[in-house]
Design a protein around this nucleic acid. Sequence first.
DNA 1: CGTATATGTCACCGAATGGTGACAACAACA
DNA 2: TGTTGTTGTCACCATTCGGTGACATATACG
Lengths: 220, 220
Amino acid sequence: MVTTTSTRPKPRPRDRAGTEGTILDAVSRLILRDGLSGVGINALAREAGVDKVLIYRYFGDLDGLYRAYAEHGDFWWTVEEMLAATDGATDAADALKRGLRHHAAAMRQRPVTLAVIAAEPTNRTALVVALEEVREKRSIELMEKEAARHGGWGDVDIAAVTALLAAAIDYLAARALRIRVYGGVEIKTNKDWERVLATVDAMIDGVFMAAFPSNPKEKS
Amino acid sequence: MVTTTSTRPKPRPRDRAGTEGTILDAVSRLILRDGLSGVGINALAREAGVDKVLIYRYFGDLDGLYRAYAEHGDFWWTVEEMLAATDGATDAADALKRGLRHHAAAMRQRPVTLAVIAAEPTNRTALVVALEEVREKRSIELMEKEAARHGGWGDVDIAAVTALLAAAIDYLAARALRIRVYGGVEIKTNKDWERVLATVDAMIDGVFMAAFPSNPKEKS
DNA sequence: CGTATATGTCACCGAATGGTGACAACAACA
DNA sequence: TGTTGTTGTCACCATTCGGTGACATATACG
């Protein structure tokens, strides 16, 4: 005869690795749906269909969970990837343009990263800090390698230019998750973004042209 | 015999206007200390030293409180103020440079506004929406008036340029409330900001120069 | 004066939060 | 076989949250 399974419907299989994966997957879903601040112990356990005590047992606390999640996922471009994207650039300005376009594309296809960036100013959890560290490290390493490739940046304050433009792209991309307009400029479609990136190109051209006025760029 | 005032220490005076002011002041303090997400009914009542039922009575709910707060404070530059700041500009590029410098200064001296901006992507409350509306309205009005002053913007996509640079400034200023570095660029002191704003100037010069290559710096 | 209303105080509600202790059952190993 | 530790389940805790009803008292108005 059948045991009365109706009172105990679905005993989760005893599989720690699988359960951990279930939990980490639920983190992604929760960040996408409710933002980083929506990731709490209770909500997470509910979303994962797992008893919250398992989260404590396997990850210690929320910070431990964040650290595990930060190591588990793919949140940024790699330096190799970026060097490949800027390979064949005709000069430093061209490399920067290609790099920022790759950056924009990489951000836009990682909504979880964007959600974390959106939460950065107000939610300084271990996940935010871990992702920031990766970004700082990779951008500095990339800038050194690009500088070596192109023999420096001339009179251009490349760190400030890059910081300004990357900050604008990050902010607009994170904002576009939910709001999709800023200062009258739409940021919804690929076409909208092409407009923004064309302007980024123009500003880069301009700032390099101003620094090297004797070497004007010919546009076809 | 003295009445046992020890059990009822400080009966708040019956003064609705004063109490409303006390509450609105507490909103500012709370936003500065804990961010916009720290403004809840209970925390606010505690901070203001006021019973929370008064908040409901006078403002309805949190959204009503936010709307009242939005009308009460000084959160942005005005169009008149901005036109004065850009008065005497030699050309459109110069006007944009002066305008963005004034924008940066105006933002940096309004930490409450910065805290609201920081919360924008994740906290779509009535206060955030109200402040966004003011910003959109004023920036569009300003751009029209500046365009009339300088006879248009030539081939420059002024909306995109302004949006990018203002987004970068807003993001960096909001971030500087707590973090103070981005992409290796410090954003602490006035000197740090002068470096960033000089780069903004250079990019504006560049993009206008690229749009008017035959007319480097001349006014008809 | 008496009375109504505005203002302020207090006590409570259900829900959700982060967190812990106790227990059941399965697996590995002796 | 019996024991031990891991995995999962459940019940509970104190705290905070947004929200409401009941009550006290000072003020304005008849």
